[in-house]
């Protein structure tokens, strides 16, 4: 009983401290928190530095995808080309092939169920933003502003909470691990014709590839569902086939 009381008091202190830190982060002085630019600088250094990241012009990431609890699984290939092109191919067992392409100013998707559709409006803007090659290491390119809100626990460790604002698009909330500087969680809202889908993504298993650090596992939580991406292979600056961006006939 004494031990429980002690633990409760300790927890109360811990939570009080966090609340104080969050409040400090919201104020103008922010004495106990680093600035957004300091947090981002530490993050960029943690993933290998801006120069090491910026030297690449293309990247192909291949791996596996699984959907829990429905037991659906498959493989994916994500092609990213500097400055603003991306092409995703996902093959799911029992479903078929999904394509999702953003090619500069246009974006479209094609799937075996609903067929082809061209994106427009805010959904298009969000897709174009997601396709920026530099957004992994140049957060100023991805966000109009970054604001530090405080510290929260992610997977038991302290993380700086930073709000990333985007012109006319929903904010992202990015969690940077205090110790490592790496991103350990991102809360975002995907715009789709079906509605807005709130997503929490947890990148982990960061590994070095060609001098830069990349997460090799991303667990994402959407309503009623978890999606897990695991990376098998990353290749940089390989020849880019234009067929990957071609619309289905």
């Amino acid at each position: 009983m004494k031990l429980n009381k002690y633990l409760l008091m300790l927890l109360a202190l811990v939570f009080s401290g966090t609340a104080v830190a969050q409040k400090a982060g919201e104020g103008s002085a922010k004495p106990s928190l680093p600035s957004a630019s300091e947090i981002v600088a530490k993050y960029v250094a943690a993933i290998g530095g801006r120069e090491a990241n910026a030297k690449f012009k293309s990247r192909i990431t291949t791996g596996k995808v699984s959907f829990s609890p429905i037991g659906l699984s498959g493989t994916y290939e994500q092609l990213d080309v500097s400055p603003n092109r991306s092409a995703l191919r996902m093959d799911l067992a029992g479903v078929g092939q999904f394509l999702d392409v953003t090619d500069g100013g246009t974006s479209w998707a094609n799937d075996p169920i609903q067929g082809f559709r061209q994106r427009s409006g805010k959904e298009l803007e969000q897709s174009k933003n997601s396709a920026l090659f530099a957004r992994t290491y140049d957060l100023n390119a991805a966000y109009t502003s970054l604001e530090v809100k405080g510290i929260e626990k992610v997977n038991g460790s302290d993380a700086y909470v930073v709000i990333g604002k985007q012109n006319g698009l929903p904010d992202d909330t990015i969690f940077f691990d205090v110790a490592s500087g790496l991103i350990v969680r991102t809360d975002s809202t995907s715009i789709s014709p079906q509605g807005e889908i709130k997503t929490q993504s947890f990148p982990s298993d960061y590994r070095e590839v060609d001098g830069i650090k990349m997460p090799h596992k991303v667990r994402s939580v959407i309503p009623n569902m978890e999606i897990t991406l695991t990376v098998d292979k990353v290749e940089h600056d390989v020849a880019v086939s234009e067929e990957k961006f071609a619309r289905p006939k």
């Binding site: 997601s130 992202d172 079906q194 990148p203």
Partner: peptide
């Protein structure tokens, strides 16, 4: 992959 929101997540959610 970096911190990218993964365009495929919205896609997968769809």
């Amino acid at each position: 992959m970096g911190k990218r929101r993964f365009s495929e997540l919205g896609f997968a959610a769809g």
